[in-house]
Design a protein around this nucleic acid. Sequence first.
DNA 1: TAGGTTATGGCACGGGGTGCCACTCGTAAA
DNA 2: TTTACGAGTGGCACCCCGTGCCATAACCTA
Lengths: 300, 300
Amino acid sequence: MRGPDDTTGWAGVFPGLASGAGRAGVPGAPPAEMQYVPHMSQPRSTARTTAQRHRVRQELATAAMHLFSTKGYEATTVDEIAAAAGVARRTFFRHFRSKEEAIFPDHDDTLVRVQAVLDSAEQGEHPLDTVCRGITEVLRMYAESPEVSVERYRLTREVPALREHEIASVARYDRLFTRYLLGHFDEAAHRAGDDDPLLAEVAASAVVAAHNHVLRRWLRAGGKGDVEAQLNHAFDVIRETFGTGMGVGRTEPAAKAAPAVRESRAGGVVVAVARTDASPAEVLRAIEKALETDEPPTGA
Amino acid sequence: MRGPDDTTGWAGVFPGLASGAGRAGVPGAPPAEMQYVPHMSQPRSTARTTAQRHRVRQELATAAMHLFSTKGYEATTVDEIAAAAGVARRTFFRHFRSKEEAIFPDHDDTLVRVQAVLDSAEQGEHPLDTVCRGITEVLRMYAESPEVSVERYRLTREVPALREHEIASVARYDRLFTRYLLGHFDEAAHRAGDDDPLLAEVAASAVVAAHNHVLRRWLRAGGKGDVEAQLNHAFDVIRETFGTGMGVGRTEPAAKAAPAVRESRAGGVVVAVARTDASPAEVLRAIEKALETDEPPTGA
DNA sequence: TAGGTTATGGCACGGGGTGCCACTCGTAAA
DNA sequence: TTTACGAGTGGCACCCCGTGCCATAACCTA
């Protein structure tokens, strides 16, 4: 009953993409009563009404969160949530597509914001760095209210339905990034022949995986500490580990910080990486050094 | 109503993990009537009954697939599926946990098989290669019946519920691999300091992403061609691109087939990988060659 | 043949999600 | 001020997924 056109999943979420005054064009979740599309030409609804609507949505979300935490997710009915928020059951579904969505009220907005980050990326930035900035936006959404995020994490671990819903949510970011990288890997004429779309997909999933890892570690730690810094560190680790592939390593800044030649020896394999602006002699010297030693490589 | 212990999601799927006679211990999907757990000590149910049960399950799956294809997923009720299979509605839910699962009847079995692959991996194999063999098992599941997979792919693209269910399914493989790599990256004392669990997560997601990419491309092409070969090629590309990180490059088997020294030049970076049993002279010669040329690297 | 196990059919119930209609409220136009 | 319109809401009814419960039939073991 959703129409066969909704094949992209998030396509319907972007009615205007920066639709004028804040979230005027995206009033929560108006998926029902198909072909809603409030024209968005004349914002008849003044600030007062939209604020009111936003307030109701917020109260519903907090009521849902509270009830889920206290008496469990499955044991909580939508009627109870609506009653706790002082509205009718039907109104709940005018603000949230489903019961699960009430616990992730910000994913849609975040998706729009991430899309905006991707769209407004300057030409010179490496697409992978743009994607990293995009996923950082998601992390900020979690970090904005650590207590809620931690409690929500506890729930998502315990309730399969919530976990699956969250997996589906992050999958939307993944697809967003994959599409972006697909469209920007060929333009950035870095690599010569093998601009495999495979790499776009793998890179996007790697970035998302790094985000998930950092986020979950932070959540398990109770939401203490600077997540964003941890995420950036994770990006550095990835750049360091996979950096040779597809010319990641931060086109400008990080490349300058990195040494011209690096070598490492591990597991019966010796590896050397060097920027081509390093002198051949410098490179060869590093290789020889790696071939001589029998010790583990220089640590991170 | 599933109990707060089911935090892993797939933990409950492995009652015995290779439970004696085939699928005797895992008779489809007995999630209801909690604490079912058929003891698996004395297989009272003879081959006849389990075969019968398997036949019913198969008929239900085919009936569901047929109805979904013809009249759409949402327009098809469970009653209709059961009626088409000649059983009662209640019986349907004894074979499938949900309506969506009827279209992915093999994921549970495949998950068990993948787990078996991981468990029976020999000591010498690199964990990442083991994981690659594991995901190959998933690909084979799809490749076993191309027409069904293609049609199912069409449905999953159109129906959000099915897409989310599939995403959740592959996420289970992802988590399986992540756990495996987490437990095997430190044992294989390859890298010195930074055995970040981050890398385990990223590597697992990369492998899964490669699988997804190859699989979807194959499905979009109508299920024609040798997918498994394409997947292995994708693994090669990944090894080639990310190969420098965490010592992937196939410790034993492929190393023999691969040349002792490989070099490539791309994106302002020159990379050389060599087995330590290659003579230093051979290594240096390859490096010099890479430093001289300005052409793209030798293709796969 | 008797007793126990397993799969099934059928019923009823809770609950999520949706379509529909009437109502209210606030804003813009007459 | 009155009127018209549109957005949000409340309430009702409906469909259908998923599950607990019980009776029954089929099958294996003793």
